[in-house]
Nucleic acid binder design. Structure first.
Length: 192
DNA sequence: CTTTTGATCGTCT
DNA sequence: GACGATCAAAAGC
């Protein structure tokens, strides 16, 4: 029995756009993914797996179809779908989505001042809206992630926030979606 | 809309 | 000890 996650086992830059349009329901509340970023395991200097396996990134080295969650900037959680072959440690960062279900739940977790389109706009906003945290690191996504038909229109460009590998256009999003986060280069990126 | 800046701490060197 | 795969508020257009 090939796992449900078989479509996640190709090259990560081909897998990432397949996640656009998918629905995710990890801990109450559902989001439709509108923006993702690919990280190519040990080959990618921007990847958390670039310098090998550590306690934090262990989940990345496991099979596809699991959630890799990490703590960022001392206050945020960010979530990835582990992709690629077992041991390759590729992953796709979930950058933004549109809340389809559990609007009240998402608003309660994010705060009343946030607009509907802003609820899951940005990787840390998305995890907060969905209730993703430490407990979801290593979560088996079967039953939580539903892939859809490939979107017919996908935009791509440089990744947000990374200070290396700017030439790699591995951010993918659904054009025209108001839930897609604004592009910001890393403050530490080389001037240009 | 844009730019700037402070918050805050786990992780790895 | 330095550095983030970030965010929100504040201030200027």
């Amino acid at each position: 029995m090939p796992g449900w996650s078989e479509p996640l086992t190709g090259a990560v830059d081909e897998v990432a756009p397949r996640l656009l349009g998918a629905t995710l329901t990890p801990a109450g509340g559902t989001v439709r993914l509108t923006e993702v970023e690919a990280y190519d395991g040990g080959n990618d200097p921007a990847s958390h797996a670039y310098r090998g396996r550590t306690p934090r990134n262990t989940v990345m080295f496991g099979p596809a179809g699991f959630l890799y969650v990490y703590f960022s900037y001392g206050m945020h959680w960010c979530a990835n779908v582990v992709c690629g072959e077992d041991g390759r440690a590729s992953a796709v960062l979930l950058r933004a989505g549109k809340v389809l279900d559990g609007l009240d739940l998402a608003r309660a977790r994010r705060g009343d001042r946030v607009s509907d389109r802003g609820l899951a706009r940005g990787p840390a906003c998305l995890t907060q809206a969905l209730g993703i945290g430490r407990d979801q690191d290593g979560l088996d996504l079967s039953g939580h992630l539903a892939l859809t038909d490939p979107p017919n229109d996908v935009a791509r460009g440089p990744r947000v926030g990374v200070s290396v590998a700017h030439d790699v256009p591995w951010r993918f999003w659904l054009p025209g979606e108001p839930t897609v986060s604004a592009y910001k280069r890393s403050p530490r990126a080389p001037a240009g």
